[in-house]
Design a protein around this nucleic acid. Structure first.
Length: 472
RNA sequence: GCUCCCAUCGUCUAGAGGCCCAGGACGUCGCCCUCUCACGGCGAAAACCGGGGUUCGAAUCCCCGUGGGAGCGCCA
């Protein structure tokens, strides 16, 4: 049987990083077994679902490259089907109408809580062979409840958690359709998973308690329950559920933070899963090695430092051309024109080892794309003193006479000058660096000059000298 | 309150009874390399939640405790 998994978010906000990991696990499990990964939008709650949220989820998944093998399924497009199934269940007796008012239910819950019991529906409208039901109150639209088995156990082998058991006595008759006729979550999930031919439900830990109910409905419908895998959630650095106050929670925020999608995915896959001592996994390798049953049972904390380290690994080793589009996105984000400077791949090549994020790379490359440099006062004071100015004055003419503006030639020129003057390289490179880049940090000086180009280099040396004269 | 789940360095993890006085990675701290920042190299500190069992032998199996988490809606 072909493996079919799905990611089923409800569009009430952005794509959460925890959701992204769940999606990744579903995706990997499907691919690992040559199966299909599907997407379903659980938008039955019209109050909270928004068009923008749907788009945000699509955008997040697209950026991560977790593409579904088929068009997304929208639950709101399937109401006819749900109605049909409910009609059938009513006819077969696996569901019934309940006329309790909300107030009545609330009172029931309050009373149970007071008696220190688990709040649950007491089955007052549940039809039984020898039971006589009250006459339905007039004018009250009923909800539909599922007739859950009263005794016995629901047992399932969770691929991550192992054997999980629930007593049916712990479960109550959940509402599958509201008074207005719209179906509810647990019911829709069951019908959809069945209709979509889902073989493996991989979802967040917070759904374990829903699983026995869903299995019971599935059985009442005569369907075979899929396999389940409940993945633990991601915690913030403080061990508490990850939320906005921990910083970035939405996938798109990680893009803004300067992450590469592959790097984020890599970090995420290692959260709760590992393969020996390996840390870096290409997508192909993840697909080859990922085993859902090896995922940890316990929740993991999100460690930004490690995530950034992984990102740096990708920045350092990925093909510059694959990084270029993201780098361009970041340059534009800080109002720099990617065409107004050296080719992106050359800059990436020069900057990658000193930048852990693309934000940093864009920022550190500002002097290569902006018309004017912003000088760091401290660095200017430190390196463009009298001696530094002398170096610049000497180097200007020599540089302007250089015939080949290439790394090797620039290297020889700078080194040759230092040797000739008996200066350490630092005494030459630093003033030059500050003059052209505005600060004491940049790629090796020969590369820096090569990337900047002759014209800008000479102009900036000029400007550094003249503005210093003004100050002096 | 009730139900379910979890527990190895600060963090992510290796470990499926002897290979473990517990290995790797991030982070931290030294040292080396060096034109800056980095990269890199070398090294250090750092953990089996507690208590009982089982066993010749337990981080690994069992029980209890403690601590964490999730769920208990006409939300999803």
């Amino acid at each position: 049987m072909t493996v079919v998994t799905r990611f089923a978010p409800s569009p009430t906000g952005y794509l959460h990083i925890g959701g992204a990991r769940t999606a990744l696990f579903s995706y990997l499990h499907a691919k690992r077994h040559g199966g299909r990964f599907l997407l379903r939008i659980e938008d039955t709650d019209r109050e909270r679902s928004t068009e923008a949220a749907v788009q945000a989820i699509f955008d997040g998944l697209t950026w991560l490259g977790l593409t579904a093998d088929g068009p997304p399924v929208f639950q709101t497009h399937r109401f006819d089907r749900y109605r049909e199934v409910i009609k059938r269940m009513l006819a077969e007796g696996s569901a019934y109408r309940c006329y309790c008012s909300r107030q009545e239910l609330e009172a029931m819950r309050a009373e149970q809580m007071a008696r220190k019991q688990k709040p649950r529906y007491d089955g007052r409208w549940r039809p039984e062979p020898d039971k006589s039901l009250p006459a339905p109150p007039a004018g009250v639209p009923p909800v539909i409840r599922f007739k859950n088995p009263l005794s016995g156990k629901v047992v399932f082998e969770d691929l991550i958690k192992g054997r999980v058991e629930f007593d049916n006595a712990e479960l109550d008759d959940l509402i599958i359709a509201r008074a207005d006729g719209t179906p509810t979550y647990n019911f829709c999930v069951v019908v959809d998973d069945m209709d979509m031919g889902i073989t493996h439900v991989i979802r967040g830990d917070d759904h374990v308690n829903n699983t026995p109910r869903q299995i019971n409905i599935l059985k009442a419908l005569g369907a075979t329950p899929p396999a389940y895998a409940h993945v633990p959630m991601i915690l913030g650095a403080d061990g508490v559920k990850l939320s906005k106050r921990h910083g970035a929670v939405s996938v798109i925020e990680y893009r803004a933070l300067g992450f590469l999608p592959e790097a984020l995915l890599n970090y995420l896959v290692r959260l709760g899963w590992s393969y020996g001592d390996e840390e870096i996994f290409t997508r192909e390798r993840m697909i080859e090695l990922f085993d859902i049953s090896q995922v940890h049972k316990s929740p993991a904390r999100f460690d930004m430092d490690k995530a950034i380290w992984v990102n740096h690994q990708y920045l350092k080793s990925a093909e510059p051309a694959t990084i270029a589009p993201e780098f361009e996105w970041h340059l534009r984000r800080i109002d720099l024109d990617p065409r107004n400077g050296s080719p992106l791949t050359a800059v990436i090549q020069a900057q990658r080892e000193r930048c852990k994020t693309l934000v940093e790379m864009a920022e550190k490359s500002r002097f290569l794309y902006a018309e004017s440099v912003v000088y760091d006062g401290k660095d200017v004071a430190k390196h463009l003193d009298a001696a530094g100015r002398e170096v610049l004055a000497d180097l200007g003419p020599r540089l302007s006479k250089l015939t080949r503006w290439e790394v090797a030639a620039l290297h020889d020129l700078v080194h040759g000058y230092a040797a000739q003057k008996g200066l350490s390289l630092g005494k030459v490179a630093q003033p030059l660096r500050v003059a052209v880049a505005g600060a004491a940090v940049s790629p090796p000086i020969d590369q820096t000059l090569a990337l900047l180009g002759r014209e800008r280099t000479l102009a900036r040396i000029e400007r550094a000298l003249s503005s210093l004269h003004q100050r002096a």
